[in-house]
Amino acid sequence: MTAIKDALSFKTAFTTTAWVLIPVAIGINMIGRTFTQVLNLPLFLDTIGTTMLAFLAGPWVAAVAGVLTNLVIGLTLEATSIPFGIVNAAIGIVAGVMAARGFLRSTGKVIWLMVALTVTTIVTATPIVVLVFEGVSGSGVDAVTGFFVASGQGMVESVIGQQLLTTPGDKILTVLLAFALIKGVPARYRPPFAREVVPF
């Protein structure tokens, strides 16, 4: 249980391995999105690296990786992704805390983890999409928002409606993939936190 305790404390969570894992998570967040575009999948998977890092090294390391993902992408590729760093960080914290509390130990609990990540995404992303971007994201999901707006819904309701339709599938697959991918990594390459929270 020491590894869990260390990962939950901001002071002890940031080992050298954790700092090395952060850029890897940033890369996986980026690649998740690229692969879904190549495969024409109706998903984002742009928080898969953060979620995986939350299972590997705990909430605080994942939160820093989440913020840095959007900062790196924002400052090197797309400036508009910067405000969404808050969403990515929140996902890291929720996934990491729930992993530490044993939510990866049974199917029922994993479902609650998926629900929590969906709610976290909707609660943190909606204000940014509405207040900063007036409801648009420049991607295909704008068509869903447009549908709700055309049916007479307000902007907040339309964005929530769009998020309710698109986020659950994305988060379910994010958790399943992150979990399955860690399971596929030989135990000796998993950080101590992952050895305690992932039941293998």
Partner: peptide, 25 residues
């Protein structure tokens, strides 16, 4: 089938990245 392909694409990338972590550390 595309979901299965996605997993097949991500797994080698992740495993190789995690194996590299020890060396980088």
């Amino acid at each position: 089938r595309r979901f299965r392909t996605l997993f097949a694409l991500l797994k080698p990338l992740l495993v190789s990245s995690l194996i590299g972590v020890e060396m980088r550390t």
